[in-house]
């Protein structure tokens, strides 16, 4: 908990973080409200397109930026490492805070979008909202870990930004490269096109694997780099 205090304070005291969450959440909720106002028969499905393709990646991008204080993963932990804190534990705490915050925000937002935009031909509202809460939370955590890999290799915003672009380019297709991106798997789980014909459970497992492997890679890289 000692090493998590700094990233937690960055999150809670960052006006940019709250504006980011509020902005992208408002976009997703507005699109859900629009579907509801038009009484769309598949309102939730349509609203989730905006949620998955725009709101989730950019919301998590903003949360990771706030958690790191807009720096690279190594530099974000240097105030603690210079006091003698183990670099690996500092990086681990930072990555976990980013993943948990992203999971909470994306899960709650996904459930809210489904509950608001629910149409008559969508699956039952409660079950759909609960499923989206789980998928959104897992995707949020995977995205956060994925972005911290970029932040562990490149200082400033470049690392995170390059992985955001990569996710956009590879994840929009249904080819093999899409399997490496959280975007394609989240889209598959929410009823969109499957990457490389992956089944839903395979995308679920892939998101979990991306989250664990990316977090491990980011922490190992930060532990080896001089603050």
């Amino acid at each position: 908990m000692t090493f998590a205090k700094l990233p937690l304070l960055r999150l809670f005291r960052s006006r940019a973080a709250w504006l980011t969450v509020a902005g992208w959440a408002a976009l997703a909720l507005l699109s859900a409200w629009r579907e509801r106002a038009h009484a769309a028969t598949h309102g939730a499905d349509k609203a989730l397109l905006i949620y998955a393709s725009i709101a989730v990646p950019l919301l998590v991008y903003g949360l990771v930026a706030a958690t790191l204080g807009d720096r690279g993963l190594v530099a974000s932990g240097s105030p603690l490492v210079r006091l003698g804190a183990p670099p690996a534990r500092v990086a681990f705490a930072t990555v976990v805070v980013a993943m948990l915050a992203s999971a909470l925000a994306c899960g709650a937002l996904g459930a809210s979008v489904v509950a608001l935009a629910h149409g008559p031909l969508d699956p039952p509202r409660t079950a759909d909202a609960l499923a989206t809460l789980g998928f959104g939370a897992l995707a949020g955590a995977a995205y956060a870990a994925y972005f911290t890999v970029g932040a562990a290799f490149l200082a400033g915003t470049w690392g995170r930004a390059s992985l955001l672009v990569l996710d956009w380019i590879l994840g929009e297709s249904d080819g093999f490269g899409a399997l490496l991106t959280p975007r394609a798997h989240l889209r598959n789980l929410l009823g969109g096109e499957a990457p490389f014909e992956a089944l839903a459970w395979q995308s679920l497992a892939s998101l979990a694997v991306i989250a664990v492997l990316a977090a491990t890679w980011a922490v190992m890289r930060a532990a080896r780099t001089r603050a």
Binding site: L6, L9, R10, R13, G69, S78, P79, L80, R82
Partner: peptide, 9 residues
């Protein structure tokens, strides 16, 4: 000379 401090605290 230029200390690295946690500016948010």
């Amino acid at each position: 000379y230029e200390p690295v401090l946690p500016t948010v605290m």
